[in-house]
């Protein structure tokens, strides 16, 4: 590929003590590309995703977003300012939503834009309304998170991330904590983003969703990317034994 990658992870490694969680992973994502990361529990998927915005700092390696290094070596004070700047450009959605329970939906969405982008109340409200409409949650703008279902919470969490107008969105098993009947509404919100060509990295256990939405699938196991390729290749004709095993177990698990 000649095009410069949008996200560039170079030789990422991470250990907790003697436990190597990521072993020399490199990954390039182009602008507008949608990448799924699949793999067994404990394989390092979350750790890799959380390294991208330095929530879990790497032990070794670099993460670049366009021409900026996210985990740039800087003195602590400067680094704090730098990383806050970088994180504004990297949206992230968590398995357990992590909405702010003391704020309404509106408050959840406007908090960061008001503080960090110095939007006025009117501007921030307009932004909140726009992003909520985007995920079909405008009618719940003055609710508290505790008054929402899991699927609704997750859609608000997506809107909250989008309100910072990030260049890339990271999703860490965002439907895993949901009742089955609530999964689809969240998937729909993500599909909509995909159609708008948002650059996304999606850790998921849902093979169907990965197949429908993603341009590329990475299979991780024990801290390495075992195999990667377009979904039709990974899901139909995986090369590695570990990938085959995982898919066999997983598809069986789904069928039960």
């Amino acid at each position: 590929m000649t095009e410069k990658p949008f996200i560039d992870i170079r030789h990422a490694a991470k250990s907790y003590g003697t436990l190597e969680v990521l072993k020399d992973i490199s990954l390039q994502v182009q602008k507008g590309q949608i990448v799924a990361i699949i793999g067994p529990s404990g394989s390092g998927k979350s750790t890799l995703l959380r390294a991208i915005n330095d929530l879990d700092p790497l032990t070794k390696g670099e993460v670049w977003l366009e021409d900026m290094q996210v985990n740039k070596p800087l003195p602590p004070r400067q680094y704090e300012r730098h990383i806050n700047q970088m994180r504004q450009q990297i949206g992230m959605v968590f398995q357990h939503f992590n909405l702010f329970p003391h704020l309404t939906v509106r408050g959840n969405i406007t908090l960061a834009p008001k503080m960090l982008k110095k939007l006025s109340d009117a501007e921030a409200n307009a932004l909140a309304e726009r992003e909520l409409a985007h995920v079909g949650m405008l009618d719940r703008i003055d609710y508290y998170p505790s008054q929402l279902s899991g699927g609704q919470k997750q859609r608000v969490a997506i809107a909250r991330a989008l309100a910072m107008e990030p260049k890339v969105m990271l999703f860490d098993e965002v439907t895993s904590a949901l009742d089955p009947e609530l999964v689809e509404e969240v998937n729909l919100a993500m599909k909509k983003l995909a159609e708008e060509h948002m650059t996304m990295i999606i850790v998921t256990h849902e093979m169907g969703f990965a197949q429908d939405v993603c341009d590329r699938v990475l299979f991780m196991d024990q801290g390495v990317v075992v195999e990667e390729g377009p979904p039709e290749v990974i899901f139909r004709t995986p090369k590695h034994e570990r990938t085959k095993n995982f898919l066999r177990k997983h598809l069986q698990g789904n069928a039960q």
Binding site: R87, F100, H102, L111
Partner: peptide
């Protein structure tokens, strides 16, 4: 206060002290 709260706030780009003031302390106060 749940660690996820800090993570969510920091992920949005809030600094440590902004996170403390706007997200953690209002919940801790209760």
């Amino acid at each position: 206060v749940d660690r996820g709260q800090t993570e969510a706030a920091r992920t949005l780009g809030l600094s440590r002290s902004e996170t403390m003031r706007k997200v953690i302390l209002p919940q801790a106060a209760r």
